[in-house]
Nucleic acid binder design. Sequence first.
DNA 1: AGGTAAACCTGGACGC
DNA 2: TGCGTCCAGGTTTACC
Length: 276
Amino acid sequence: MPELPEVETTLRGVEPWITGKKITDVVIRQRSLRWPVPPEISDSLVGQKISSARRRGKYLLFLLSGGGTLLVHLGMSGSLRIVNRGEDDWRKHDHIGVGLSSGKELRFHDPRRFGCWLYCPAGDVPEECHELLKKLGPEPLSDDFDETYLWKSTRNRKVAIKQFIMNANVVVGVGNIYACEALFLAGISPRKAAGRVTRKKLDLLVRSIKEVLGEAIQMGGTTLRDFLNAEGEAGYFKQELRVYDREGQPCRECGSEIKRIVQSNRSTFYCPKCQK
DNA sequence: AGGTAAACCTGGACGC
DNA sequence: TGCGTCCAGGTTTACC
């Protein structure tokens, strides 16, 4: 479900409710996520304060007063919401509840269970506290992600540009929706080999990725089916989508029919006329 | 090493 | 109503 804008929306939604609050208890109803929820999630969290919350790619990092870090990924269908302790019944697929000293509770919901909850002990830089984070590429909205970086990293790469920008080791946070959208904005065919995209187009692609992610964050993310923010509200970016999920409909720029193809088992939507 | 396909899950939409 | 098929905001893992 969530790409960078949806994870960022989630972070901004839960952050004010959890920072500075002490964890009073943790309820785990389903340990079987992407990886089994480790015992530390209940054993080590209780009694600690959540000192801050941040995002790295599509991972949420909750820094704890003891120095450790709680690492959460929402996978394809995960979401976090804030509920009032005791007032909000557990819904189907609510797997974890973190009780807070304020009387609120952070509740994790994930029907497909591709998400994960992991615990990193104190000692490391939070952004590198786990193997999963160590090889991640730059943040797309940071200055580290620029034209020069993309130019250098694409040299001699034969993989399709769409798959390339969806690789978290290249740049984090660009999932299937925003990869399609950014390539449309930049006028690049999703099938083009990464190493054969011109420097000028790569420059445009960098700016398109920043633009589309930035706009989507402003609009609270994209709700295709079931994404909801921490208050249980939908995002509004769906109405802005230029190509994603628009197979057979007219291109908003040229009127041509939007096409759908499959690349590495994922749907790609594009305009054959606008994207070369 | 790079590139591709399968794997992990549940549920909704659609055709018969 | 039901059943089979296909599809879905991700990413690791196994395999060529």
